[in-house]
Amino acid sequence: MALSTDSAMTSPVANPMIPVPWRVQKARRETRDTFTLTLRPANGEPLPAFAPGQFNMLYLFGVGEVAISISGDPADQENLVHTIRAVGTVTRPMQRLKRGAVLGVRGPFGSPWPVEEAEGNDVVIVAGGLGLAPLRPALYRLLAHRQQYGRIVLLYGARTPRDLLYQRSLDQWQTRSGIEVAYTVDAAAEDWRGNVGVVTTLISKARFDPVHTTAMICGPEVMMRYVIMELEKLGVTDENIFISMERNMKCAIGFCGHCQFGPTFVCKDGPVFRYDRIEPFFKLRGV
């Protein structure tokens, strides 16, 4: 039986499957294995608005496509910023891209950090490794509306001092922006004066009101597990904890099935989830 072709059945104007060409405005090395690409539309089309926490599919012509979080300022109308780790067949050649190179972009996709819902609350941001990248747009938004929030705390853990992302920004945020920043590394040489240990050790030292706190967490799942336990111990409720999940992704629009996590599709229901809504599945292994 044929389908009706009216109303809801008609396609959106743009095909969400086809990459649109964007040009590298700036390529910057962050750490030994991460780099940041600043992109502008190659065809002069306006920047699609994105919300902090969303991601794009970045395509290297003829090579392949990867899901990468947007890590720039959501208020920046000109540039699209992605921080990428060079680990695979697509991201390694992407690391060699220079200013002027063209790559394909599809997006933005996915659910945002609850930056508006958090207004009036203290905000605790906990990041592990590259997990700081998808949280940075939220930080920009919080700082742009600084007076809407109570205390803002950023806790960040990396493997070594050389792996700390956005180090200059970390220091600036700490000194200028009225947010409490603490970072730590798993291992460091003797000349390191900072914290050593996992990021959870920073939580009890941070100043915030657990009852009126929105927590946003991104990092390896095992790290997020321990952060959540620590926050719960202090009295932060699961409805106020938000985490960003990572799964294999091929289509980003709910058709390929790869990113399923329990009953959710990370691409369209996530990547940002309110913890109480996925808690039973997050506690299982191999889901």
């Binding site: 044929a2 389908l3 072709t5 059945m9 008609t10 396609s11 959106p12 369209k268």
Partner: peptide, 24 residues
């Protein structure tokens, strides 16, 4: 499968074009 490809957040244009003209 109609629900998956035609009634979710996005519409799959490849499925749609095959499905629409179908006589069953």
């Amino acid at each position: 499968q109609d629900k998956v490809f035609l009634e979710s957040k996005y519409i799959d244009p490849m499925y749609k074009i095959r499905r629409e003209g179908c006589f069953i």
